[in-house]
Design a protein around this nucleic acid. Structure first.
Lengths: 340, 340
DNA sequence: TAGAGTTAGTTAAACGTTTAACTTAAATCT
DNA sequence: AGATTTAAGTTAAACGTTTAACTAACTCTA
């Protein structure tokens, strides 16, 4: 049987309360007894029982991670990386993270994830878009929530966000710096704050570069930013403006689709048109040519979310909701080049 | 505050023991009181406290899922799918699954995953290869273990496996049926039972087809089955035998690498050579041409593992270790064709 | 009809922590 | 020196379940 706090107490010659206080490194304990107890803990290889602790503190030590199921059907393991980041982020803590997927179109008929119904989590992280219906039901529960790469416009939530505006700016600026003037933007799901912000960055950089924004250079009506939609968007874009010499795709999936379109239509990248994506997914370097993109530190988004929710759980009172912005980085590969 | 078993007992007019027995649907309870209690549970929206239960039963309700970290750096989300399958598999159960990654070269200096050290799991699932060092340390712990897509040759473990031999057979038979005679095999990490078995299937099907096995048609010395290694293996293969008309790659990643090699060297697929992979990853359908492959039901591997470990946990005594074989399926796309 | 057996439910202890309230001894103050 | 404060640790109750042992009410059986 595993040793309990009693065994430690006996071995160290103190009461179990003292052991408990040492574990929480409470100020009341002298360093002398502290070391004594710690020694006993080491020697017995003691680990406190989570159940017993949970019973009295009414905590579970778990954090729920929620994702819409469609993300796992995608080729690009974007949110998977983020999830992995959360797992890594818990290493210094006493938390475990529990994953659950919900339907992309979660609605009133759907059940909440089991760990929520059973109150098996102390807080939850929602990555990517979730339906309003879902968010509203979760909010009623009075459980700490942190969003990643999304925030509902219905309130002021804790969120960790990609610096999409700046990403949009540096991506576009890169093209401008290369001498391009007719710079297209292709995007999908423009109502998603991330896509919207990338588009904003695009417009800002254009303006800073003295280039007038032109609606004809934009295709933003695709339903979501997937490869096939990137293909379609590229087709539409060239139909709207034949003189395009550079394209900024709102993410790498669409960029890959656009690249496919170009290949199919004898448009050489980067000779005829430069192409830049956003996200930096693994597939990028296997493309022909390897894709220039904006690197999103996916892993970090996860670790930041853990730190944030930890704080939110600790200070329930801490109500000045706040957003954490994770910086992005330009990765120049071979799909962009100077305009001749 | 959440309702407790006491609230339910009071509402139903029974003792808390009765409520507990109803929850476990113990035979001692009449249907009358059972329904009475269940009604109270529903009305109060009662959910038993996992901590309290865990404290007395010495269980945690968690299952650990262990994966070497390199899998998450790969483009193909193979094990991610399996993990997701386990999550799905727990829906009918009372388990949660906790993910942890370990180093690919885990050795004596490395720490075991936290949930193991803290005894926060009732059983663990190990997906893919793990070092002998890791497995040995885990075994000492006397905790139920189930392997997925791997098994150490040091013993007789519970495992859920892909039917790799049959997969190798049907893949090769497909090529044989198309009239190919000079059929290459490219593989990496041949010491991995999955790769080894696919190779066995290849040889068996060759024999059944009346084709003599030829070492010159095989490249099996790549370190692991990745895209770049697929590229290299294809190069070696053609260097060994120019007359190859079909290739069976041990997985899709290598097939994709091989396809790249062919493209770079003006070898047309499927006109000049037919190519078949193994796994059926998302990327396959975006390839040019889309890849014929053997579909591995990744999701199912996960759900099967959950069912298996559930049983192992339940019947600790059940020691006739057993293997579950998950069937595979031939998916014909455009990378294979009849030999002219 | 008494006694034994069976059935359906109850009682109470136990699980391993945390923490408010308490104790004791030492330090500080007047 | 005696009273008061402070410091460091202890005591004991509480958290919400499970389950062995018990009880009371029936049902048989001879």
């Amino acid at each position: 049987m595993s040793p309990t706090i009693k065994d430690v107490a006996k071995k160290a010659g103190v009461s179990i309360a003292t052991v408990s206080l040492v574990i929480q490194n409470h100020a009341r304990i002298t360093t002398a007894t502290k070391t004594k107890v710690q020694k006993a803990i080491k020697e017995l290889n003691y680990h406190p029982s989570r159940s017993a602790k949970g019973l009295v503190t009414k905590t579970t030590g778990n954090i729920g991670f929620i994702l819409t199921d469609d993300h796992f059907l995608q080729t690009e393991p974007f949110y998977t990386k983020i999830f992995l980041g959360t797992e890594f982020g818990t290493r210094g803590t006493n938390y475990y993270v529990l994953l659950a997927t919900i339907a992309r179109d979660f609605n009133s008929k759907d059940e909440l994830p089991r760990f929520i119904l059973e109150r098996s989590v102390d807080g939850i992280i929602i990555a990517g878009k979730a339906t309003q219906d879902f968010i509203e039901r979760i909010e009623l529960l009075d459980i700490p929530i942190v969003f990643i790469d999304y925030y509902p416009n219905s309130g002021n939530f804790f969120t960790v966000l990609i610096d999409n505006i700046n990403g949009g700016i540096i991506a576009t600026k890169h093209l401008v710096d290369l001498g391009h003037k007719e710079i297209g933007f292709i995007g999908g799901d423009i109502s998603h704050p991330s896509i919207y912000d990338r588009f904003s960055g695009y417009k800002q950089a254009l303006e800073s570069g003295g280039i007038k924004f032109n609606k004809k250079n934009c295709v933003i009506d695709e339903e979501d930013p997937s490869r096939p939609n990137g293909y379609n968007a590229a087709k539409k874009l060239f139909a709207q403006n034949k003189k395009i010499t550079a394209i900024f795709a709102c993410n790498d999936a669409m960029a890959i689709g656009a690249m496919q379109y170009c290949t199919d239509n004898k448009i050489k990248i980067p000779n005829d048109v430069s192409l830049i994506g956003f996200d930096d997914v693994e597939a990028d370097i296997f493309l022909n040519p390897p894709l220039t993109t904006i690197k999103v530190p996916k892993f970090e988004l996860g670790t930041e979310a853990i730190h944030l929710i930890e704080n939110v759980i600790k200070n329930k009172s801490y109500h000045n909701k706040k957003k954490i912005l994770v910086p992005v980085e330009l990765i120049i590969r071979n799909s962009t080049r100077e305009l001749k």
